[in-house]
Simulated scan of single mutants.
Amino acid sequence: MTGRSEFERRTEPFRKELLAHCYRMLASVDEAEDLVQETYLRAWRSYSSFEGRSSLRVWLYRIATNACLTALEQRGRRALPSGLGAPGDDPTGPASPTDVAWVEPLPDSLDPELVVTGRESLRLALIAALQHLAPRQRAVLILREVLAFPAAEVAVMLDTTVAAVKSTLQRARARLDEAAPDRSSVIEPTDPQARALLDTYIEGFEKADVAALERALRADAAIELVGTTTWFAGRVTCLRLLEQAVGSPGDWRMISTTANGQPAAAAYVRDATGTHQAFGLAVLTPTPTGLTHIYVFNEPELLTRFSLPLQLPPGGG
């Protein structure tokens, strides 16, 4: 029992950062949680042979990274709609379903402190861009550039050479530059402008005020309907979609939250009884000049991950 309690005491402080690491690798909260569990099981089984040639943190990251690489051998990459094709031009048409595995949003509440310190590396657009990298490229880039492990330690984790790590990192950077959007203008969710944009977005839906939504969107804004291959680019086209969606005043109620270090709105739509049933989550990308992206996850059960109810009673604001 002493050995087990010592193991837990020494390793538990790394659990949440390992979850973030596995999430960056896999783009799935569920899979990341499973892999962290597997990491701790493997670590416990081999703890008696851990000889301290590396730090405990490096040892745990080695186990977690290799568990992720094994998992990635068995499936394709996760994606967002914009990673699958060109934007649509007819918001009145039906969305196109597909069996693609999607990038999942990460509740900031899983570890607020970690999200604050590593917020940029958890933003949805970057998580999606990382999925374009080959798994080992992804691992090297995350370990070196996000987590700042020295090349020698990364080489030990991946059972390779320092030279191989450096060349892999170079290729990963070049590929990421092709896949990743410009993130320099994105502002933090605590910024007053970000809060104002979230409030305007929520007001637009709750009051069926399309003009408010128009004020919130930048001219180059995009809306992605995650779970389908459908997405739209440009404020004019996006507003045509939103005009159909807002309905009448009171049809929607929303609760503000945060996901992937970005402002988000949990959405509820009114049914025939006047009860607002969970619809899903909208994750927003705010900049000083407006929203550039709205990712819509039409998954009611997703709200339970954010400790939110699946329905709201009639009435309320």
Rank of each mutant, 00 (worst) to 15 (best):
E6S: 10
E8S: 09
E12S: 14
E12G: 03
P13T: 09
F14S: 10
R15C: 06
R15S: 06
H21V: 00
C22N: 00
Y23M: 02
R24C: 09
A32G: 06
T39H: 08
Y40K: 02
Y40M: 05
L41N: 13
R42C: 02
R45C: 09
S46Y: 12
Y47T: 11
G52A: 07
S54C: 13
L56Y: 06
R62L: 12
A64C: 04
T65W: 01
C68Y: 00
L69S: 04
A71P: 11
E73P: 01
E73L: 13
Q74G: 13
R75N: 05
R77C: 00
R78G: 03
G83V: 03
G83E: 12
L84C: 08
A86V: 15
P87M: 03
G88F: 04
D89K: 15
T92R: 14
G93P: 04
A95N: 08
P97H: 03
T98G: 03
A101M: 05
A101E: 09
V103P: 04
E104H: 04
L106E: 04
P107D: 04
D108Y: 09
L110R: 12
L114S: 14
T117S: 14
G118V: 05
R119K: 07
S121H: 12
L124G: 10
A125Q: 08
A125K: 08
I127H: 03
A128R: 00
A129T: 01
Q131I: 02
L133E: 02
P135L: 07
R138V: 08
I142R: 01
R144L: 13
L158V: 03
T160A: 09
T160N: 09
A164C: 06
S167L: 13
Q170C: 06
R173S: 07
A174G: 01
A174H: 05
D177K: 15
D177C: 12
E178L: 09
A179N: 07
A179K: 02
A180V: 13
S184C: 10
S184M: 07
I187E: 11
I187F: 01
E188K: 02
D191K: 06
Q193T: 15
L198Q: 14
K207A: 12
D209I: 00
V210D: 15
A212F: 01
A212Y: 03
R215L: 09
A216Q: 03
A219Y: 14
T229F: 01
A233N: 11
A233T: 11
G234C: 07
L239I: 05
R240M: 13
L241M: 06
L242A: 01
V246I: 08
V246L: 05
W252F: 12
W252I: 09
W252D: 04
W252H: 12
W252E: 06
W252P: 05
W252Y: 09
R253I: 08
I255Y: 15
S256W: 14
T257W: 13
A267W: 02
Y268H: 00
V269C: 02
R270W: 08
A272T: 14
T273V: 10
T275H: 11
Q277H: 02
A282E: 13
P286G: 07
P286M: 01
G290M: 02
L291M: 08
V296P: 08
F297H: 08
P300M: 09
F306H: 10
F306D: 15
L308A: 00
Q311F: 13
P313R: 15
G317P: 07
